[in-house]
């Protein structure tokens, strides 16, 4: 199976390239990549959380979505591995997150940056490059 994300070289921070067959999958994979790269090991029962975001454009929607996930993850001590979208457009996102409590975490992601942030349409789907401050 093709890996859904790659870690790109960057001296200090975490730069990733994420793939998705659709924009929805791209967002889901970006979230999963963030937790995988942070070395998170989940445990226990599945928990659900509602999420609703509105942003001016798709790039900001991605930043806002991942920032909200970081906020929820830190305050609830949870990592999320799936999302069921109720609504999804270039500037709105609504759905239900599925996650578990965090048992172990290697790294704290401090924030989602705008540095060279991009989403590109490719033949086989979408590709995003994101740099996180760690």
């Amino acid at each position: 199976m093709r890996k859904f994300f790659e870690i790109l070289p960057h001296k200090a921070d975490l730069k990733i390239k994420v793939f998705g067959a659709s924009k929805k999958e791209l967002f889901l994979n970006a979230m999963k990549a963030m937790f995988e790269a942070a070395g998170i090991k989940p445990e226990g029962k599945v928990v659900k959380r509602k999420i609703k975001i509105q942003s001016p454009d798709i790039l900001q929607l991605l930043v806002d979505f991942l920032s909200e996930i970081l906020y929820l993850s830190e305050t609830e001590n949870e990592a999320y591995f799936n999302i069921k979208f109720k609504k999804f457009s270039d500037n709105t996102l609504e759905g239900e997150l599925f996650g578990k409590k965090i048992k172990e975490q290697g790294l704290i992601i401090k924030g989602v940056t705008y540095h060279n942030l991009e989403i590109r349409k490719k033949k086989e789907g979408y590709l995003a490059t994101i740099l996180f401050d760690v």
């Binding site: 806002d64 920032s67 970081l70 401090k110 924030g111 989602v112 705008y114 401050d133």
Partner: peptide, 10 residues
Amino acid sequence: GHQIATDYLR
């Protein structure tokens, strides 16, 4: 601090 930066950068 991370949240303050996130909020104002946006």
